[in-house]
Design a protein around this nucleic acid. Structure first.
Lengths: 250, 250
DNA sequence: CGTTGAGTTGATGGAACTCAAATAGCGTGG
DNA sequence: CCACGCTATTTGAGTTCCATCAACTCAACG
């Protein structure tokens, strides 16, 4: 079993689809994808790592808070938002998972999820079953160590977001958000100077702890200063260095 | 090698001090302490887990950002603040580690630390060497799994803090902060209704993303409402339920 | 062409920041 | 033991930034 190229087959609901190992190597994320590398490990259980390819239409829920999630995920394309039900009947966005990034690492095997994940745009993902992954970890300490590394990195991202929104004002947050997206897209080979926002203004606002009007005004202000260009969901960063300056409050 | 009872021996700088295994069992944190349990594991390396007991005077730096940290830590008593050097030459507090809690889990073996840790009051801690711990993990998948659980939990705390400061106003943050401290102290058996703040107002302010004046005003306001009593660093929570109400914005 | 929903812009008030001054703790040494 | 000085904390007054509410634009769609 292995990762599939989503272009190659139509999606049939409820069916896990397998293909020969080769498709992982031919995947655009090959070399970046942790599950893909693990699946090709010689010690992988005979029955396979249980990687399942899925299409997630826009607005579709991947898992809900309170559910047991028996998988973790790799985003192949699209964008998934992770939300947390807040005290006052409103959910807040705590993460956007982009192509090439992993999701739900913080919901181990036998525990219920504390978050809900929803596709903000049509997405393709690969799901890895905790069960078979844990077996593999037990057999191969190196894999476990690498996995710990990933979990730690996920935690570091949370702390980065924390400092972004705790210590900065609205315009700085927006600037930092755009630069962060840009950097992450570039990591995956996508050109990060010009990209499309998968999420809407309300999601961005919730993520950054401001109102959507403030997001809008900030976009306008940054455009006025000629640091970015915005047209609906399309964003172009024209002056990255200056934008960084805004984010850093200099 | 094992955890020591800090009352029993004077501290000599730069010296790792060992005692027989029994002292872990006699430690007040026995049953709570992950390293202690691991050290008593039958598969523990013959040379021991390399647990080192340390005294950390107030204001003393445990490790700095940019250094390689070859240990992770268990706080036996006191309070350690973890700070992150911000962009504009000022450091911000991202965590307070209390007695019974672990520190530096997010700085794996061979990586440089992204944070600086300082004792905000005189503290006693136990240090676990990554090297011997990793050996043990390789030998015992159960330990590794448990450790992953701890790392995940540390990440969850970061997300909790995130929602506390992103979605709440100052008074709510202070209320949430006090309740959080209270809960954590009670977990360790300490009575959590009345306790001493190890850190000063500036640290609290930095942690919560407000000014120290705002912390002060919030304390005053909560006192005025008779939900808490404050006298310098001593805090008493007189109406926990109502304080929770303030935190939740109800 | 009217409707609908997302996004932008404008006007206003309130919460928290800033600067400044007053007060309380707290250790030190006479 | 008390006076002293230093620092931490509290309180006050004015200002800034952002949330709020409302009106408006624009594009998509039947």
């Amino acid at each position: 079993m292995a990762v599939l190229r989503h272009q190659e087959q139509p999606w049939r609901p409820g069916r896990a689809q397998g293909l020969e190992r080769a498709s992982c190597e031919s995947c655009g994320l090959w070399g970046i994808c942790f599950p893909g590398r693990v699946a090709s490990d010689v010690r992988a259980p005979a029955k396979g790592l249980g990687i399942r390819r899925m299409r997630l239409p826009r607005g579709k829920v991947l898992y809900r808070a309170g559910e047991k999630v028996e998988c973790f995920y790799m985003i192949r394309s699209g964008c998934i938002k992770e939300t947390q039900d807040s005290t006052c009947h409103r959910s807040t966005v705590i993460n956007f998972a982009l192509a090439g990034e992993m999701l739900s690492l913080h919901n181990p095997d036998d525990q219920v999820s504390s978050t809900t994940s929803v596709a903000v745009e049509a997405s393709f993902i690969c799901a890895v079953h905790w069960g078979s992954f844990n077996e593999l970890c037990a057999a191969s300490p190196g894999i476990a160590a690498e996995f710990i590394r990933l979990v730690v990195k996920a935690g570091a991202q949370a702390r980065e977001l924390l400092t972004l929104i705790r210590d900065k004002e609205a315009l700085e947050r927006i600037a930092g958000f755009l630069l962060n997206l840009s950097d992450r897209l570039q990591l995956r080979g996508v050109q990060g100077r010009e990209f499309r926002l998968g999420m809407n203004r309300d999601d961005i606002a919730s993520y950054l702890g401001v109102r959507s009007e403030t997001v809008s005004r900030s976009f306008t202000e940054l455009s006025r200063r000629r640091l970015i260009r915005v047209r609906a969901k399309r964003v172009q960063i024209t002056k990255p260095a200056e934008l960084r300056g805004v984010c850093d409050g200099t």
